[in-house]
Design a protein around this nucleic acid. Structure first.
Length: 549
RNA sequence: GGCGACGUAGCUCAGCUGGUGAGAGUGCUCGACUCAUAAUCGAGAGGUCGUGGGUUCGAGUCCCACCGUCGCUACCA
């Protein structure tokens, strides 16, 4: 085997406002968890981090609408998200929030380093201001009449009716979404990050990423094509956010979300190192991932997040010092429902909570993993998820385990039989399963998780075929010794397949530990003959889908 | 408007740097089997690879145009 590598599995930070839907799950969280689990089995040192993004205008607006504090909103959704991760089997090394003191400190340190290095400066600009609620307004909080189509409720950034991109200045009869007041223009001073200084470095950085998915690298390069990256303000007139570590601008200003959110990958790594979950106890352990050229950083995000992770975040890292840049950003496309992008706020598709009401966690993970939008938008529906579970997961894998365990239980005194040698067909089956580990490892290295699942399922199908060919239920009557050999072989194959599937199906794979023992790595372990087995029960129940959805 | 991705069997999708008769899963038909959650295994039917041009000895795979779908368009993150 190759030397263990330090792998950072960095997962997009969900916004702690509103419910997550299964598009988010299939887009980022589930593939991250599958990948992380497989990498741990391979023997790599995995650090999988993420957390809830607690800053941003929408949270403050929602808080005001409900008459509670932003922290109340954050607490509500963060705990809801945590509970769902638990039910889904997400194997975080740390899932934190951007609301910690640690995150504020790391963000401020990075800000100061970039300021010191000359990549942050101050500029004055004009912004829209709502005099009634005394707050500066993001573009999309200004509404008015669209100058192109006359639609009355166009937002300041875009008209939902004709789809044209707008500048709030263009709106006819602009009004604040918060109060309805007519916005005023006021001057305000902010810190800007000089992203434009990094255009050339980013260009060669992206040019070196020849193995990235085409849609990711093309999209990122598209931003650099013309005049390169633009500098962006990284502070805001807002009172909910991280304090600016220098007081040059006066009160009422904070660091803005999208500058600090990506820093969460680093701050969470430091929080992990300093905490109880770091087995080494060394608070400097984060350096093994961030200050190590041989580590590998893989970012799991949806395609809407590509600019932030392929451009802005690398530029921030470059400006802060010698920290490890993203090695791979296997951004997924979208899961669609009836042709539309999943969106919890628009009521399209299923929320994670809805899905967990209908499907058991492993079955849901299986169905979504089989439909990951790795290369193109992928259509899913409740019926399709149910079909995948019943026709593929239950029929091929669940039934295989059940039929073999049932025969072993009945015919072998309830214990794993030993074996007195193998026939050619036995060895062929085991060789097929073992070969799947090599094929699967190659697919995981490319983060082709859908293909990895197919590889595992093919091994399961080969085992079903082996049973139909050898017919141990007949041998039992004529040649019990050979029947035991066959069952031993089939169970050994299952022992391999369950490891191949373990990244996808953590709960049910673990249920087999009592019979097969815990996996020791990305391989098929030998069986422990004589291990008693209980009367088998199916790993998965079929889903009953009544009528049309 | 600009940019990007996608458009391949009924359905959901693979097809890498162009090269023997276009694939998988599922569904459908037929057959085998009955240990197993009416599950399994085998065989078969089923496709103008969006449309029209072009490059090439040869294109699903490269180029152009068009049609359709989706997304992004920098103050949602």
């Amino acid at each position: 085997m190759t030397e263990p590598v330090n792998v950072l599995v960095a997962v997009a930070w969900p916004y702690a406002s509103g419910s997550r839907h299964i598009g988010h799950l299939a887009g980022a969280y589930l593939p991250a968890d599958i990948f992380a689990r497989q990498q741990r089995l391979v023997g790599n040192r995995v650090l999988m981090v993420s957390g809830s993004d607690v800053h941003g205008t929408p949270i403050t607006v929602r808080a005001e609408a409900e008459g509670v504090s932003p922290q109340d909103i954050v607490d509500r959704y963060h705990s809801q998200i945590l509970e769902q991760w638990d039910r889904l089997g997400m194997s975080w090394d740390l899932y934190t929030t951007t609301g910690t003191d640690n995150h504020a400190r790391v963000t401020q340190d990075m800000f100061l380093a970039q300021l010191e290095n000359g990549f942050i400066d101050r500029r004055v600009s004009e912004q829209f201001y709502d005099p009634e609620v005394e707050r500066f307004l993001p573009d999309r909080y200004i509404e008015g009449e669209c100058p192109h189509c006359g639609y009355g409720d166009a937002r300041g950034d875009q008209c939902d009716n004709c789809g044209k991109t707008l500048d709030p200045i263009e709106l006819i009869h602009p009004r604040s979404k918060l109060s309805g007041a007519t916005p005023e223009r006021r001057q305000t001073e902010h810190f800007y990050y000089r992203y434009s200084d990094f255009t050339d470095r980013l260009r060669s950085y992206l040019d070196s990423k020849t193995d990235w998915r085409p849609h990711v690298v093309n999209f990122a390069k598209g931003w650099l094509e013309d005049e390169g990256l633009q500098d962006r303000a990284i502070t805001r007139d807002i009172d909910w956010g991280i304090d600016i570590p220098v007081d040059d601008l006066g009160p009422g200003k904070k660091i803005y979300v999208w500058y600090d959110a990506v820093i969460g990958y680093l701050s969470a790594s430091k929080e992990w190192a300093a905490g109880d979950r770091n087995p080494s106890g060394d608070p400097q352990k984060w350096r093994d991932w961030w200050e190590n050229r041989d580590s590998r950083h893989v970012y799991f995000i949806g395609k809407d997040n590509i600019p932030f992770h392929a451009l802005f975040w690398p530029a921030q890292l470059m400006g802060a010092g010698d920290l490890h840049l993203p090695d791979s950003i296997p951004a997924n496309q979208y899961v669609t429902f009836k042709g539309g992008k999943a969106s919890a706020s628009r009521g399209i598709g299923l929320t994670i909570a809805d899905a967990l009401e209908i499907f058991e966690p492993d079955a849901l993970r299986f169905a979504l993993a089989a439909a990951l939008p790795e290369h193109a938008d992928t259509e899913v529906s409740v019926e399709e998820i149910g079909r995948r579970i019943n026709e593929e997961l239950v029929a091929t894998w669940g039934n295989l385990v059940n039929r073999v365990l049932s025969m072993v239980y009945k015919n072998c005194d309830g214990r794993i039989p030993g074996t007195s040698g193998h026939h050619t067909e036995d060895l062929e089956l085991l060789a097929t399963v073992d070969a799947a580990f090599d094929a699967g490892a190659a697919q995981f290295a490319q983060v082709e998780l859908k293909a990895g699942l197919r590889t595992a399922m093919k091994a399961a199908q080969a085992t079903n075929g082996y049973l139909n060919a050898t017919e141990p239920w007949k041998l039992q009557k004529t040649d019990a010794e050979r029947a035991a050999q066959v069952l031993h072989t089939a169970l050994s194959a299952i022992n391999g397949v369950r490891v191949l599937l373990a990244p996808y199906l953590p709960f049910t794979s673990e249920r087999l530990d009592s019979v097969l023992g815990a996996p020791t790595g990305w391989r098929r372990d030998p069986l422990a003959a004589g291990t008693p087995i209980a009367k088998p029960t199916p790993l998965f129940a079929k889903v009953e889908l009544e009528g049309a959805e």
